[in-house]
Amino acid sequence: MVIDFGSFYDFPRYWDKVFEEFFGPATLAQRRAAYPPLNISENDEHIRVRAEIPGTAMQDVELTLTGRSLVIKGERKAPEGKYFRQERPAGVFQRVVTLNVPVERDGVRATLADGVLDIVLPKTEAVKPKKIDIQMS
């Protein structure tokens, strides 16, 4: 049997933790959550997904666009040798981005520069905001 000597009155510490989580830098907290880290941004024309995938060549990355989601799949290979320290992640990764606007499949472009993958998904004409001219009668 394990005897817990901890105080039941843990409320102040709990409260501190809640505050820390709420006001702490979100980018830092999420950094380790999933691999690869993603930035998603949009404007009227397109949705842009950027991912930090250092050490992964373009041929090791597989991008799949299904009906409503973008799947980023790939593999990071660890170099051979006698390790003194290993901090960089290695292995197979996958992340799924759910898109809630229809995109033009043929216009999707992806580039890889300095270990950052940049995917631009143009929105279809139907969802782009359109200005309507009012005719004077």
């Binding site: 930090e52 995938i53 250092p54 050490g55 660890a78 170099p79 051979e80 040798g81 006698k82 390790y83 003194f84 320290r85 290993q86 901090e87 960089r88 992640p89 300095d114 270990g115 950052v116």
Partner: peptide
């Protein structure tokens, strides 16, 4: 930055992840 330090016969290799750095 996360780093791997590896020893090979010819010497040491250090790999560092620095995405977005030109």
């Amino acid at each position: 930055q996360p780093s791997d330090i590896i020893e090979r016969e010819d010497g040491f290799h250090i790999f560092m992840d620095m995405p977005g750095v030109a």
